[in-house]
């Protein structure tokens, strides 16, 4: 057979497969709808967890990026030398020097009434000069604090040790929990598609046997079921994405307008969101395909 003949055969074959997939879905439309619905629910939950995970991570990062080490200096400290040493440390995102005068002003502002501290200005100011150092993540703060404390001219260091440790711990738990739940849901969804396709295959078992007798290749038999699984997976995923998209939009608008605290901001970066939605789409389609392939394998031996 020449190449034109092969192409014509392939087109006829694909045409047949598409027709069979459409006929099969419409013949078992309730089963297909229920399966797609179950995938939609599974993927919505999975997607919800993923969105929750990225938002939690962002909140954690917001908090982490605001964690800082307060480095209190003694009066004899060589500030330019210290600044140089701090600047050269690994894991530092930013630092700033606060002299005792500005430190008093900051303290006054934190009390809500700067007038309360008027007596303590000038020579009577009891506060030391200090550096405020921020790490790139919360986990690095204790090590940074330990290093800085060893520098000459540093009297003491202070940071939210408990808070830093808690944030690192909670962040780890949330990530593990999200990954675990996501894997469970993905396996469940594959099983659901598999069940739908198995039923579809069982209904058409006689047809498969006859087709094998007529000389149909395994792929000829397999492809309509594969397309059926992909269509179910795709439909379910699109419903899930629409639901998630709408829900997340409402959530983001609400948080952007009414967030009570600075660090509670939704993830709105298109790159991150598109990546999640594309991954879900790919996952849904893959689940449909995998469910089909696993279900029809054992029916092909005639």
């Amino acid at each position: 057979m020449n190449s034109k003949g092969v192409i014509t055969m392939l087109i006829n074959y694909l045409n047949y497969c598409f027709r069979q997939a459409v006929i099969s879905v419409s013949r078992n439309r309730w089963l297909a709808l229920v399966s797609a619905g179950m995938i939609a629910v599974s993927l919505s939950i999975l997607g919800g967890f993923l969105l929750m995970a990225v938002n939690t991570n962002q909140v954690m990062q917001n908090i982490q990026s605001n964690l800082e080490v307060a480095v209190f200096l003694d009066d004899a400290a060589d500030i330019p030398v210290l600044e140089k040493k701090i600047e050269q440390l690994d894991g530092i995102s930013s630092y700033r020097f606060v002299d005792k005068h500005h430190g008093l002003q900051e303290f006054g502002r934190s009390l809500g009434d700067e007038a309360l501290l008027e007596e303590l200005t000038g020579e009577r100011n009891p506060l030391p000069d200090l550096f405020r150092v921020r790490g790139v993540e919360a986990g690095l703060i204790p090590a940074l604090a330990d290093q800085i404390e060893q520098f000459p001219g540093v009297e003491s260091v202070d940071y939210g040790r408990e808070l830093a440790q808690s944030i690192t711990r909670i962040s780890g738990w949330l990530n593990s929990f999200s990954i675990g739940i996501s894997i469970l849901l993905a396996v469940g969804a594959i099983f659901l598609v598999g069940t739908a396709i198995r039923l579809s295959v069982a209904i058409r078992q006689e047809e498969i046997g006859i087709m094998k007798h007529l000389g149909a290749s395994n792929w000829f038999i397999r492809l309509p079921f594969l397309l059926e699984g992909l269509a179910i997976g795709c439909t379910g995923t699109l419903v899930a994405l629409a639901t998630l998209g709408l829900g997340y939009y409402q959530f983001a608008v609400f948080l952007l307008q009414k967030s009570p605290v600075f660090f509670l901001q939704p993830v709105t970066a298109p790159a991150k969101l598109v990546l999640i939605f594309l991954s879900l789409l790919l996952l849904g389609i893959m689940m449909g395909g995998l469910g089909s392939i696993f279900s029809i394998r054992r029916f092909l031996k005639v």
Partner: peptide
């Protein structure tokens, strides 16, 4: 006989050609 009950007479016979990719 092994005919497919859900297919018409025409479709049953056509199946033998469809599995070999014959043109419509």
């Amino acid at each position: 006989f092994r005919l497919l009950k859900s297919k018409t007479v025409y479709e049953n016979v056509a199946l033998a050609l469809e599995v070999t990719g014959r043109p419509p």
